[in-house]
Computed example of a mutant assay.
Amino acid sequence: MTSKMDHEDKVEAYARALIEAARSEGRANADLVQWQHAKKFSPEVLETLATMQAEEDTDLINDVARRYKAILDSEDTTISVTVTTAVPMDDELRNEVRTAMTEQLDAPIYLVERIDPKIIGGIVIEARGRRYDASVRAQLANIRKTLSASFIGGDD
């Protein structure tokens, strides 16, 4: 019960903080629209914004957006590959992933490393809008789904 109340208190506090800040600048409705779109942000965008906030670099957001577009519009064929592991990769694994992805994508890659203990183990690779999930968490979910299907569709 307490954790649900803590959750509700946090939600209320965040919402009121957003409203107060927005009202003081006359943009409450505009902020609501932005907030509703925020749920569509990828984890990478949220992490980047959080880092920029922590480093007090939010004044660079417009410059980053312009550079982002310039890089996309350029002839640069480098592909960003996000690799998520439960623990930091060692140099050997990093080199193996870099080599394999460079060969598979037939292009130079920029490796973005993320650590997420929730995947338990294994690796998740994302590139060009595709996701290869060989995490322990995904494997356990597949086992659970298979077992659930076999019991539901089992003997009558």
Rank of each mutant, 00 (worst) to 15 (best):
L60E: 02
M101N: 01
L60W: 00
Q104S: 08
A65R: 05
E56N: 04
S74E: 02
M89C: 11
K69C: 11
M89Y: 03
R66E: 00
Q104F: 03
V81K: 05
D73K: 04
R98S: 05
Q53I: 05
E56I: 06
T85S: 14
V83G: 13
N95H: 04
S80M: 13
T85F: 13
D90A: 14
T58P: 03
T102L: 03
E55S: 08
I79S: 12
A54T: 08
A100M: 02
T78E: 02
T99Y: 00
T85L: 14
T78P: 10
A100N: 01
A54I: 09
M101L: 05
D73M: 06
L72H: 04
T51I: 13
E44N: 15
R66V: 01
T58H: 04
V45Y: 12
A70E: 04
D57T: 06
S74K: 04
D76Q: 06
D76N: 07
T51R: 08
L46Y: 14
N95A: 10
L93E: 00
N95R: 03
T48M: 14
D90K: 10
V45W: 12
A86Y: 06
L72P: 03
T99Q: 02
V87C: 13
D63Q: 08
V87P: 09
A100Q: 01
L72V: 05
T82A: 14
T58A: 11
T84D: 11
L49F: 12
E44W: 13
T48C: 14
I61F: 07
T85C: 14
D57P: 00
M52F: 05
V87L: 12
M52C: 10
L93G: 07
A65G: 12
D63E: 08
A65H: 05
M52V: 11
E92F: 07
N95G: 08
T77R: 11
S80E: 10
E47D: 14
P43Q: 15
R67Q: 07
Q104C: 09
V81R: 07
P43W: 12
A50T: 12
L46K: 15
M52Q: 05
D73I: 08
N62K: 11
T84L: 14
D57L: 09
V97I: 08
E56F: 01
E44I: 15
L46C: 15
D90R: 09
L60N: 05
V81H: 10
E103Y: 00
